[in-house]
Structures are given as structure tokens and as C-alpha cells.
């Protein structure tokens, strides 16, 4: 299995020279199996860059298939949807899977609202030429996608829940745990440990440098240290810090990685936009 980070930034897309090495696009992560099956997590602005790449292949001819897992529907995770060009070619088979954002509000209604005529000239999901199949996930269940086995779980994110994913393919496991804040840094919830159990790569929310966390508590995000705690307890083999703060320049992220790695038994990297990495 290979992975490519198309967007690693949290909350807000950042342009400018200080953000070039790690990248300024909001969250979007692609996984590809050895046999070429593909899966996307989240539709932040990074997805628009992937879209350009996809449109050089079968998606341009309306012969592409892509399942997309959404962690949740905060804007930084869906703002690329209206500009994800494979949606505009009839024949592409695109599925969006995710949990209902809140009780009583469906995923479909939320995405429909994003494309309401006020906000978008697309004027509704029905005008995406490819069509889109929206499938509601019940967190805690397992979803089988072509080439991938996915265990899902709900994790706390401020006043809502996000869906975390444990994705297995080709005998390797990647765990995606973003937009999460545990009751305490040293007390990750059991579901997080189950999802990250012996994962080859744990991608974890690291919105705040540890020193900045105290004054940012309650917004639903983790300090870098929280991912280390999960990785160590779950026996994950590698930790990728993710969902970087919009104010964190490349140099600041370098410093966070250095400080975090110094106190971690698990190797630590910061997720960066770039090339395909082997798991």
C-alpha cells in the first residue's frame, strides 16, 4: 500500500512561501493498494490537486471509481468537494462515506446544504454530472471497499464526533485519527487505541504545539504529544503529525517534530504534501 498526502493543514488553507515544504492545503489523503485500488480520506482543498492528477487518466473518460471517506463535515474537510473535477464527468463512480454529522442531520443534507444555491452555483448534489452515492457509516462497524478493509470508530471533537478509520490493505495498516481531542492528553479513549493497534502508520491530529495547547483546550484538537501517547500505547510503528495549525510555518513544524520525537519511543514525522510513500 502507498500513501500520498494532498492536504495536511487544519482549519484553513494557507498560501505563501512559509508553507511550501509541508504544504498549505486542507486535509486530503490518498491510499493506493499494490493492485492500484484507490481510496481518499477527506475533501479539503488538497483534493483539488489530486483531481487534476486523476483527470489525466480514466476519470477524464468517465471510467473512474473512487470511494471517499469523510472524517466529518467541518469545512476544512469538505471545501474541495465543489471543485473536485471527477464529479463533473458523467460515468465516474464516486461514493462518499461518512457518519451523520449530528443526530437528526444526515450527511446528505449537510453536503446538499454546502451546495445550496446561495453558496454554490452547482445548486445541489443532483447537478454533479457523475452523480454521487452518499453512504452513511455507523461508527464502530467495518466497511469493505474494493481492495481495503476499514474499521471505523467515533472519537470526540469538541462539541461533535469525528469518524476515525483503521484501513488495512496488502497486509499493512494505516490509522487516520484527525480532529480529535481526548479528555486528557494522557487518557486517549479506548476506541483510539483499538483503531491504532499495531498500525504501520498512525496519522494523528497535531493542531497545537504542546506549549500552545493549554490556551486552546476545548476546540476539539490535540497537541502533538497526544499522538505519541496513542502511538506508544497502541504499539503503532510510526506516527505522522497531521492537521497542522494554519499559523505553523515550515520552520515551526520542524521544531515541533524535533521536540515531539525527542520524547517518543515511536518514530515521528510531520505529514507533508508530496510524493507517494510506501507503507
Amino acid at each position: 500500500m502507498k500513501i500520498r498526502f494532498w492536504g495536511v493543514r487544519g482549519s484553513f488553507a494557507m498560501s505563501g512561501r512559509e508553507f511550501l515544504r509541508y504544504g498549505g492545503n486542507t486535509t486530503s489523503v490518498e491510499l493506493v493498494t499494490d493492485a492500484g485500488k484507490r481510496l481518499l480520506i477527506d475533501l479539503g482543498t488538497g483534493a483539488t490537486e489530486l483531481a487534476k492528477e486523476l483527470m489525466t487518466g480514466e476519470f477524464c473518460k468517465g471510467q473512474g471509481a473512487l470511494p471517499i471517506l469523510l472524517s466529518h463535515t467541518h469545512l476544512d474537510h469538505i471545501q474541495g468537494l465543489p471543485f473536485f473535477s471527477p464529479f463533473f464527468i458523467k460515468g465516474n463512480q464516486i461514493r462518499i462515506l461518512g457518519a451523520a454529522p449530528l443526530s437528526g442531520i444526515s450527511l446528505e443534507a449537510t453536503l446538499q446544504n454546502q451546495l445550496s444555491p446561495h453558496y454554490s452555483p452547482l445548486n445541489g448534489l443532483e447537478n454533479l454530472a457523475a452523480g454521487v452515492k452518499i453512504e452513511t457509516i455507523i461508527p464502530g462497524t467495518t466497511v469493505t471497499l474494493p481492495g481495503f478493509e476499514v474499521l471505523t470508530g467515533a472519537v470526540p471533537h469538541g462539541s461533535m464526533w469525528t469518524t476515525a478509520y483503521r484501513i488495512t490493505a496488502d497486509g499493512k495498516t494505516v490509522t487516520f485519527l484527525s480532529d480529535v481531542e481526548y479528555p486528557a492528553i494522557d487518557e486517549p479513549i479506548p476506541a483510539a487505541l483499538v483503531l491504532a493497534h499495531e498500525a504501520d502508520l498512525l496519522i494523528h491530529d497535531a493542531m497545537y504545539a504542546d506549549d500552545d495547547y493549554e490556551r486552546s483546550k476545548g476546540w476539539g484538537h490535540s497537541p502533538a504529544r497526544a499522538g505519541v501517547v496513542v502511538a506508544e500505547r497502541a504499539g503503532a510503528k510510526k506516527l505522522a503529525l497531521f492537521h497542522h495549525n494554519p499559523d505553523a510555518t515550515d520552520d515551526m513544524i520542524d521544531a515541533v517534530v524535533e521536540r515531539t520525537a525527542a520524547r517518543s519511543a515511536v518514530p515521528v514525522i510531520a505529514a507533508a504534501e508530496g510524493n507517494y510513500l510506501d507503507i
Binding site: M14, S15, L20, N25, T48, E49
Partner: peptide, 12 residues
């Protein structure tokens, strides 16, 4: 939509 990256640093 916002476009970060090396190709837009000068115009934004």
C-alpha cells in the same frame, strides 16, 4: 477556492 503552493506565492 484557495490555492496554496509554489505556483501561487507571488500573486497569492
Amino acid at each position: 477556492y484557495p490555492v496554496p503552493g509554489a505556483a501561487t506565492v507571488r500573486y497569492g
